[in-house]
């Protein structure tokens, strides 16, 4: 057996870059998370369960995760629509609309929250015409989550739509497919992985969102209070143990959900034969 010659890779620097990657990841991501888990480990299991099964905590989780899921779903629909319009049609002001899409990325979330509140408050420009309350209800929290999540979907779907050959649609039309059939059977399956990625990013962002939601949600305990706010509230009351308990549950749930989405993606790719 011949000894493997050193440095067989064409692209050099694997050791260095991997080392740097791990170091950075440790300092910025893994260490803080480990500290969090360590702190929570100081609690007994019974005590931890008691904190996280408190009705107020459970309600906040329902809003954070349930609201984020609904917001991500809505973003999936609206984001696909926006991406479609931006890619498929040429109209005056297209570039401007394109630039607006990124604003939720850059805008301080508090500004977004205050602006949305002003609009959707019962006496706001939009709110006064609505027969139901938006601001200061869970609906308001979801509205903010939609706002901050939409660029994720648009920006992940856009390039895939751009690469979609028009010939595929033409082929479908020649084979007798209607527009709806072409969309459902030809276009959607191709953009599905990107759409799913965009939705999961929007979801992750909405789960962690704090700044914009707390202005519009009204933060009524048990009704429109999100989990991150509950953590801050506990911290302000010097209840560090309670805050960490909630934080570890958030961490665990987020990780499990994102992992599930990743597995779904992998399954989808394999189903499409791309693994070969």
């Amino acid at each position: 057996m011949m000894a493997r010659p050193p440095n067989l890779r064409v692209i050099p620097g694997f050791d260095t870059t991997l080392g740097l990657t791990l170091a950075l990841l440790s300092l910025v991501v893994l260490l803080p998370l480990a500290a969090l888990v360590l702190k929570a480990a100081g609690l007994g299991v019974a005590q931890w369960l008691a904190i996280v099964t408190d009705p107020r905590v459970l309600a906040s989780f329902r809003l954070s995760f349930g609201g984020a899921a609904i917001a991500a779903g809505l973003n999936g629909i609206f984001g696909l629509l926006v991406a479609w319009v931006l890619v498929r049609y040429r109209f005056p002001g297209r570039k401007l609309v394109d630039a607006f899409i990124d604003l939720p990325f850059a805008l301080p979330t508090a500004v977004a929250g205050i602006a949305l509140t002003a609009l959707y408050a019962p006496n706001g420009w939009v709110g006064q015409f609505l027969p139901f309350k938006v601001a200061f209800t869970p609906l308001g929290a979801m509205l903010a989550m939609v706002f901050i999540g939409i660029p994720f979907v648009v920006r992940t779907v856009e390039p895939v739509l751009q690469d979609l050959e028009s010939e595929l649609e033409e082929a479908a039309a020649c084979l007798g497919a209607s527009r709806a059939q072409t969309f459902a059977r030809v276009i959607l399956p191709v953009i599905a992985p990107a759409l799913l990625t965009g939705i999961s990013l929007a979801f992750a962002r909405a789960v962690g969102e704090y700044g914009s939601v707390i202005f519009i949600a009204g933060n009524m305990p048990g009704v429109s209070e999100i989990a991150p706010l509950l953590i801050v509230t506990k911290l302000e009351q010097f209840d560090y143990v309670g805050a960490t308990a909630i934080a570890t549950l958030m961490l665990g749930l987020s990780f499990a959900l994102l992992l599930a989405i990743n597995l779904l993606q992998k399954w989808n790719r394999q189903r499409m034969g791309a693994a070969s």
Binding site: E165, E167, L168, E170, A171, C174, R185, V186, P189, V190
Partner: peptide, 12 residues
């Protein structure tokens, strides 16, 4: 029936 130059097969 139309056969495209680059076939336009449905990849999925």
């Amino acid at each position: 029936g139309f056969v495209f130059q680059h076939y336009a097969l449905f990849r999925h």
